[in-house]
């Protein structure tokens, strides 16, 4: 695996070295992530692409602290991550999940959803922060006391983004944030994420199966398959077709639409 060395001596925001994650034991052992390494600079947006089962979301969950059973080295803002994390470090990393229908509590109002992280972290000034968070994601104050079922998919995902941002994190982990949305709503949410990264200087790690979304959002990306990084490329490499590995090239061809001749030539990876 090749590792792109980030140019400056500046400290990376995210550093992952030889990360391995496995589930189960003995004959049932599944190596979901195998020796993955990459670094993300502050303010950068980094993409992880791959098909289901490639391990991309597993990396994200470990980075978010949702799975303590990993080995290797991970650091965020220069602080080494261990199985247990201090609260201040948890605050730095927040996550937006794929399914806006599943990730919001159906019996909690938007106000409750947004103020809960503040309560957990003992942050004061709840009222102002909740209002500001809604405003930041383009939802008016009238949304504050609504329940998730009263919102559209796009509005729910905006609430999920507001919840991720309310603790003022440095790193936001995006797990297929728009794959459940219509393309027109996807465009709005991706534009919002682009704006927020610029305004707040956020660092993103974006997981997606959609090469178009990743090429749009990320300057650099890793293409994954069965737990391994097969190739690390830039968005320009994608648009100019400069991919080295046969699997990545096949993924690129597949994302260009239906072509019977190309499909007949697909290999099994």
């Amino acid at each position: 695996m090749t590792e792109i060395v980030t140019e400056s001596a500046a400290q990376p925001m995210i550093e992952i070295r030889d990360l391995s994650i496995s589930f189960g034991q003995g004959a049932d052992r599944v190596d979901a992530v195998k020796n993955v390494s990459f670094t993300v600079a502050p303010g950068e947006s980094y993409g992880l692409v791959g098909e289901s089962g490639s391990g991309k979301s597993t990396i994200l969950r470990a980075l978010a602290g949702l799975n303590p059973f990993w080995s290797g080295h991970m650091a965020i803002a220069g602080q080494k991550l261990a199985a247990k994390r201090p609260r201040a470090l948890r605050r730095l990393v927040q996550m937006v999940f794929q399914d806006p229908y599943g990730s919001l509590h159906p019996k909690h109002t938007v106000d409750h959803i947004l103020s809960e992280p503040l309560a957990i972290h003992g942050v004061e000034d709840v009222e102002t922060r909740v209002r500001a968070a809604l405003d930041r994601v383009g939802l008016g104050p009238e949304f504050r006391f609504r329940y998730p079922h009263q919102l559209s998919g796009g509005q729910r995902q905006r609430v999920a983004i507001a919840r991720a941002l309310i603790l003022e994190p440095k790193v936001v982990l995006l797990d297929e944030p728009t794959s459940a949305l219509d393309v027109s709503i996807q465009a709005e949410v991706l534009n919002l994420l682009t704006d927020l990264r610029q305004q707040l200087g956020l660092t993103y790690v974006l997981v997606s199966h959609d090469l178009g979304v990743v090429a749009h959002m990320c300057a650099r990306l890793s293409i994954m398959r069965t737990g391994e990084v097969v190739e690390t490329a830039s968005a320009d490499d994608l648009s100019e077709g400069r991919l080295l590995h046969a699997y990545s090239r096949q993924l690129l061809i597949a994302s260009r639409g239906y072509d019977p001749a190309a499909i007949a030539a697909f290999g099994d990876f």
Binding site: V183, S184, A187, N191, T194, D210, H216, S239
Partner: peptide, 12 residues
């Protein structure tokens, strides 16, 4: 409105 690999735009 979908993002394209070949034609990258700052905003969609």
């Amino acid at each position: 409105c979908p993002p394209e690999i070949d034609q990258r735009r700052a905003r969609l």
